[in-house]
């Protein structure tokens, strides 16, 4: 069964200046504004097609700016592609960039509830898992402090603990494990292995090749918004590591 299917997906980002310029200036330069809507776009993903089977663990690799986070955001349904189709079957638990899904002024505990509810659980369900989440994150001591006082590793710990305990069907992990300390990384790896046995689909974005080799069944290599390689992690990574560096 396919959990995620991308069919000829292209994603542009707007590059219009209004964002910086504001409404008044846009009106003052109306013709220019209208033109810039059409012209200034940035192609982040170009005709991307792939499938991920249910229960598969897939590593997404590629240089900075190659479109990995964009791909995850499309799977999470946060972004919508301009052309092509994204089909996702199952409840997605996205662990996108660090701190996403948290409100900086709320405490760790309040953020756990907020985050769980945003992901579609009821308040009672989240509260029922609260203890497990807290225990796994090992952050008891800081739980009543606002998130903005947390270190990056602590935020990552909290984020991973929540996602791992909300019974995801599709788990998206963008890079956040690398900021955890060695002990926590090891703990996450064990947890991911356990989650894998439950037929959860995992998409892992990381620059640590070892991680992909250890955990993933398959790797997809993105370069400048295109899929340039897919298959067994060892062979894809071998080619990726030898390729000249392409950053845009």
């Amino acid at each position: 069964m396919t959990a995620v299917r991308f069919e000829h997906v292209s994603k542009w980002y707007p590059r219009y200046h209004q964002l910086v310029r504001g409404f008044k200036a846009s009106l003052l330069h109306l013709p220019e504004t209208l033109r810039s809507f059409k012209r200034e776009q940035f192609l982040a993903l170009h005709d991307v097609s792939f499938q991920i089977q249910k229960g598969e663990t897939v590593g997404l690799v590629g240089a900075n700016g190659s479109g990995k986070s964009t791909t995850l955001a499309l799977i999470a349904g946060v972004l919508v592609p301009q052309t092509g189709r994204v089909e996702v079957k199952g409840r997605v638990c996205p662990l996108l960039e660090l701190g996403a899904g948290f409100h900086p002024d709320l405490t760790g505990r309040e953020n756990i509830v907020l985050n769980g509810i945003l992901q579609g659980l009821t308040r009672r369900e989240v509260l029922g898992r609260m203890d497990e989440i807290i225990a796994f994150s090992e952050l008891e001591y800081f739980l009543d402090q606002p998130i903005r006082t947390y270190s990056s590793g602590m935020i990552a710990r909290l984020g991973f603990s929540i996602a791992a305990h909300l019974d995801p069907e599709i788990l998206l992990i963008d890079e956040i494990l690398s900021v955890g300390d060695l002990h926590f990384q090891e703990k996450c790896r064990d947890k991911l292995r356990e989650i894998k046995t439950r037929q959860v689909t995992i998409v892992l974005v990381t620059h640590a090749s070892a991680e992909v080799r250890r955990l993933c069944d398959r790797a997809i290599w993105l370069q400048e918004g295109r899929v340039v390689g897919t298959g067994d992690p060892d062979s894809v990574l071998a080619r990726y590591e030898q390729s000249p560096c392409v950053v845009r």
Binding site: A76, V78, L96, A100, G101, P104, L114, L118
Partner: peptide
């Protein structure tokens, strides 16, 4: 003010 939430989850 809720950018971090909007970027992450579809709700």
């Amino acid at each position: 003010a809720n950018a971090t939430l909007i970027k992450k989850v579809r709700f």
